[in-house]
């Protein structure tokens, strides 16, 4: 414990120094969940870049998937007297007391990427998140448009059973194709969000659907599963992107490589830039007292082969995906 106290003290003094040295406009503490996925790593990278762009002094604390670490980090940010705190909460509940402390210290808190239990609504300034139902809907609408009235049998690679993202992306896609009776989901199985399972499930879909001849499109809840599915189609002698349309979500760099090669058709971006809108909201709040809406929805941008996928790949490949 003593050792930790010393560490904290030195971190504190170091922080004070850096504020003075940079003469930054704002100091923001960011309690990041960890680096469990490529997207998470990219979010961290982009957050740093966005901070630099705005001359914000950003302190990032990696919680290694532990709420306890996040609470400690927030307390330490409060003690350091930062101007705002960003929190990507690892779980939805248990934040009340530490967020109250922040409120008493008059430090605004912005939630990134994930929401918390509704009971704490008054405890944070705003939440910047993506709407995963909307993501699925964008994917579905693209497919309806691309199928252009022709009959289209879709196979769906779901995320992990029970994960809210999977449920939402499934629902959103179903909403997106609801108006088009020509587009229907014929098979749906979980690929656990992984390449390996995506490939294995796609292999069985191909076998079950007459060697893939009756499949018109694949919808995957994330790009990783789609990358696996693309391999399965190629190994079965099919041409993904031509014989079978693909649409997935996340917009990780590897899917752009596939799009550049003509093997994938579309992806919906889950932007790693949650911090940018958050910075803007905080700055407006600090400068003019503008109270942002409780929920800032990030854009779910659709990318297709027409969007110069190679260039997007180049811009994304070093973000840490």
């Amino acid at each position: 414990m003593n050792f930790k106290a010393v560490l904290l003290a030195s971190a504190l003094s170091g922080a004070l120094f850096s504020v003075g040295a940079n003469a930054a406009e704002l100091t923001v503490g960011f309690s990041q969940i960890g680096s469990e996925s490529g997207w998470r790593a990219a979010e961290t990278t982009v957050s740093k870049a966005e901070a630099k762009k705005r001359n914000v002094n950003l302190k990032i604390a990696d919680a290694q998937q532990k709420q306890e670490n996040q609470i400690k980090a927030i307390r330490s940010f409060i003690a350091q007297g930062v101007d705002a705190i960003f929190l990507a909460p690892v779980v939805a509940t248990g934040w009340d007391s530490v967020l109250k402390e922040a409120k008493e210290a008059s430090i605004p808190v912005v939630l990134l990427d994930r929401d918390i239990d509704p009971s704490g609504k008054e405890l944070y300034l705003t939440a910047v998140t993506s709407d995963s139902v909307h993501e699925g809907k964008v994917a579905g609408e693209w497919l309806v448009k691309t199928a252009a009235g022709k009959p289209c049998n879709v196979v769906e690679l779901q995320g992990t059973v029970g994960a809210s993202v999977a449920t939402n992306r499934k629902k959103g896609f179903e909403d997106g194709i609801a108006g088009a009776s020509n587009v229907k989901i014929v098979r749906s199985q979980t690929g656990d969000f992984t390449r390996a399972k995506g490939k294995e499930v796609m292999e069985s879909f191909i076998k079950a659907e007459g060697g893939g001849k009756t499949i018109c499109a694949v919808y995957a809840h994330n790009d990783d599963m789609m990358v696996g599915a693309i391999q399965a189609m190629k190994e079965a002698g099919l041409k993904p992107g031509t014989d079978i349309l693909t649409v997935s979500i996340d917009a990780v760099p590897d899917i752009f490589k596939a799009m550049a090669a003509g093997e994938a058709n579309a992806t919906v971006e889950l932007t790693p830039n949650m911090a940018g809108p958050a910075f803007d909201a905080v700055m407006a709040f600090k400068a003019k007292g503008t109270v942002p809406p409780k929920w800032i929805q990030t854009e779910s941008k659709l990318y297709t082969q027409a969007d110069n996928p190679m260039a997007v790949y180049e811009s994304k490949k070093d973000l840490g995906y």
């Binding site: 656990d192 992984t194 390996a196 391999q231």
Partner: peptide, 14 residues
């Protein structure tokens, strides 16, 4: 074999 199968190493899930 698992890595060769998906042309990549997925440390979280392999």
């Amino acid at each position: 074999v698992a890595a060769a199968d998906i042309l990549g190493a997925d440390a979280n899930n392999a």
